[in-house]
Computed example of a mutant assay.
Amino acid sequence: MFTGSIVALITPMDAKGNICRTSLKKLVDYHVASGTAALVSVGTTGESATLSHNEHVDVVKMTLELADGRIPVIAGTGANATSEAISLTQCFSDSGVAGCLTVVPYYNRPTQEGIYQHFKAIAQSTDLPQILYNVPSRTGCDMQPETVGRLAQLENIVGVKEASGDLTRVSRIQALTADDFILLSGNDDSALDFMRLGGHGVISVTANVAARDMAQMCKLAAAGDIAGAQAINQRLMPLHINLFIEPNPSPVKWACEKLGLAATGGLRLPMMPLTDTGRQVVLSAMTHAGLL
């Protein structure tokens, strides 16, 4: 459940920013049918930053309900206050989630020791499997491989989503962790290279709109069919890049609306709808990928 193509699922909203259950059901069904390995509910792409604590919990539990055991659900439980991250994590103790994805604390820029103590405190507060998430471009703080290695010694810290863009991290983390520690890419544009170096999969934004292709690419890569995986990856590369032409998740939400996977591309301030220029670029990438 923690390998292959895992989608960083959008949180569908109507034009007023209200969460849309109907669209969420359509998205969950789409991923079940497409072979997606698992759903990450209310991660960064799920707009965790603009949901209230109660909404955050409600969306994860709604996703679990709609999944109905057909596909594993991983709860996004990150926060820059350790106490809040623990509180969110404990909300899912008996919920049925497969595990939690927890981001490096953002804004307050802790030391490596602070990062270690943050994740240690969370892990010790729960029996749920924990996946670390390093994305320095968003958090302003880069969790080093040595810190990952220390954290990997804790029993229920089972993997890391590495989104620094530094592919040398794969071998560096492998050298510091056990063979069963899971390495997931957080960058669609380099996910295949990440897997070729020994990674186990990707937590993907592109999978929101190209779920079957991403699942197949990961399966081929895991089977050693790099040529087959590369053919898919090249077709998807404009999507990998241009779904970030404006701040995530604005482009991917518009793409989901365009494909009929969501009723609208609704967002909450300060996020803004995709511009006309951005729409043309994303439309071209979708066409190149064979989605239209």
Rank of each mutant, 00 (worst) to 15 (best):
P251L: 12
C91I: 13
A81G: 14
C20R: 14
E84T: 15
V282T: 08
L267H: 02
H53M: 12
E162N: 07
T275C: 12
S87H: 13
E65K: 04
I19K: 07
L261A: 07
A123W: 03
E84N: 14
D166Q: 10
L267N: 03
T287M: 09
R150D: 03
C256T: 13
C141R: 02
E84L: 15
E55D: 07
P72N: 04
V28M: 12
G17H: 07
G46D: 07
K253S: 13
T168C: 08
P136S: 05
R138L: 13
V42K: 00
V97G: 06
L267V: 09
T168L: 07
M286E: 05
V170C: 04
V148F: 04
N134K: 06
H240M: 09
A211W: 01
I241L: 14
S52W: 12
L183A: 07
I6S: 04
V73K: 03
V205K: 00
S204D: 11
K61R: 11
T77A: 15
A262K: 03
I19W: 08
S23C: 10
L239H: 03
N208E: 12
K61L: 15
D213K: 09
R212A: 13
L101Q: 06
V135L: 10
H288F: 04
N156I: 00
H288S: 09
P12W: 10
D225I: 15
V59E: 08
C141K: 03
K253Q: 11
A222W: 04
N18S: 15
Q153S: 02
R212N: 10
A231D: 03
A38R: 01
E84Y: 13
R150Q: 04
A81M: 15
D142H: 06
C218R: 03
V104M: 04
Y30N: 12
N242M: 11
G4V: 00
L128H: 00
L220I: 14
M286W: 01
A255C: 14
D58M: 14
L269P: 14
E257F: 04
I115T: 06
Q153G: 02
A285S: 01
A121D: 05
L184A: 05
S95T: 15
K26E: 11
E246V: 13
P249L: 07
A163G: 08
H200F: 04
D179K: 08
G69F: 11
G266L: 12
S185E: 03
Q124K: 01
I115D: 00
E246D: 07
C256K: 00
E257S: 10
G140D: 03
K16L: 14
K258C: 03
A67L: 12
